[in-house]
């Protein structure tokens, strides 16, 4: 498991009430997370990984795995 995935798992545990361990391959749209929580989570992701994702940017991530891939690619 990548360090990015570990860090995201930690952020999810702290900021999203998923009710269970996150499935990184599940569709984010099927997570049941509210829009307020989703925006709050991406704000934390921005801070944790020094990103500047806007709300509209977040629509590109169908799954948490795709977010991991994006972050790792940015870290190069």
């Amino acid at each position: 498991m990548s360090s990015t995935q570990d860090r995201l798992r930690q952020l999810i545990a702290e900021h999203l009430d998923l009710g269970r361990d996150p499935d990184f391959d599940a569709k984010l749209g099927d997570s049941g997370v509210s829009s307020v929580d989703a925006v709050a989570f991406f704000k934390e992701v921005n801070q944790a990984f020094s990103l500047s994702l806007e709300p509209e940017d977040c629509l590109q991530f169908g799954t948490l795995r795709e977010l991991v891939t994006y972050i790792d690619a940015r870290a190069g």
Partner: peptide, 11 residues
């Protein structure tokens, strides 16, 4: 879709 929700509340 109902089955894909991970926990009971969103279902």
């Amino acid at each position: 879709r109902w089955h894909r929700f991970p926990v009971p509340a969103p279902r």
